[in-house]
Simulated scan of single mutants.
Amino acid sequence: MKITEFMKSKKGASGIGTLIVFIAMVLVAAVAASVLINTSGYLQQKAATTGKESTEQVASGLQIIQVMGKVNVAADDIEYITLIVTPNAGSGSIDLSKATLMLTDGNKKIVKKYAADEDAFDSDKGSLFTGLSWTNIDTSATEFGIKEIQDADNSCAAATPVINKGDVVAITISNVGGELTFDQRTSVSGTFEPEFGAPGVISFTTPATYLTQGVVELQ
């Protein structure tokens, strides 16, 4: 009985040690909360940026409408290749100065980029197979030329060849020096890679014979 009364009447006291532990717990909780808030803010920003970039990557891209070649019957070869290109449906604006054209005949692969000068750009929306489309491409450089076909908002220019919804351009490369071999029945493949988004796919087989001097549809 006396022991029970003694235990009921006993009072505890918080010493300095307990107080230090309590303050330490509060500080740790505050630091942890600060770290969590900062981390969640950073992750939210990264998620938003990644989501935007992923959307651009998936939704944007190039579509190759047609591939044509200019035949040199005497050399039994194709001298120039032209791609008719437009953005995919729903695609954002695409800067062609950052695009890369890759092509292979099975034995050799070439990589071409835009030369970014007036000689490699043709704003004349007239006949496709005159002027720059065939003859003004530098045969010694790793470059392609651009000719406007359709550009209602004039977004595509020599210094800033940007295409967007509804724009159609011709991308031309020279093979005058026989950089690639386009013999009869040669399988040719490649891609036209924009800075972001889906690339345009190139895949065709050259004709069985080159009988006519002029333009042939390849793809």
Rank of each mutant, 00 (worst) to 15 (best):
I3S: 15
T4Y: 14
T4A: 15
E5W: 05
F6W: 13
K8S: 15
K10V: 15
K10A: 15
S14R: 05
T18Q: 09
V21F: 11
F22V: 03
V26H: 05
L27T: 00
V28F: 14
V28E: 11
A29D: 04
A33N: 10
L36M: 11
I37R: 09
G41T: 07
Y42C: 13
Q45M: 10
Q45H: 07
T49P: 05
T50G: 15
K52N: 11
S54E: 12
E56Y: 10
V58S: 12
S60L: 06
S60P: 03
S60C: 03
S60W: 07
I64R: 02
Q66D: 14
V67W: 03
V67L: 05
K70Y: 11
V73L: 00
A74E: 10
A75I: 01
D76S: 10
D77F: 01
E79F: 07
Y80H: 11
T82K: 10
T82C: 08
L83Y: 01
I84P: 00
A89H: 04
D95P: 01
L96E: 05
M102K: 14
T104C: 04
G106I: 00
G106Y: 02
N107S: 13
N107A: 12
K108I: 04
V111W: 11
Y114E: 04
Y114G: 05
A115W: 02
D117H: 03
E118R: 01
E118L: 06
D119K: 09
A120C: 01
T130A: 11
G131H: 00
L132D: 05
L132A: 06
L132F: 04
S133L: 04
T135W: 14
N136Q: 10
N136Y: 06
T142Q: 15
F144Q: 05
F144C: 02
I146L: 06
I146M: 04
K147M: 03
E148H: 02
E148D: 10
E148W: 03
Q150C: 08
D153E: 12
C156R: 00
A157N: 14
A159Q: 07
T160F: 11
V162K: 02
K165L: 13
K165W: 12
D167E: 10
V168D: 10
V169H: 08
V169I: 06
T172K: 05
T172W: 04
I173D: 08
I173W: 06
S174V: 03
G178D: 06
D183T: 08
D183Y: 08
Q184T: 13
T186M: 11
S187G: 10
E193N: 13
P194W: 09
F196H: 11
P199G: 09
P199F: 09
G200A: 08
G200I: 05
I202H: 03
S203V: 04
T205K: 08
T206D: 04
T206I: 01
P207H: 01
P207I: 01
A208P: 01
Y210A: 02
Q213E: 13
G214N: 02
G214W: 01
V215I: 15
V216I: 04
E217R: 09
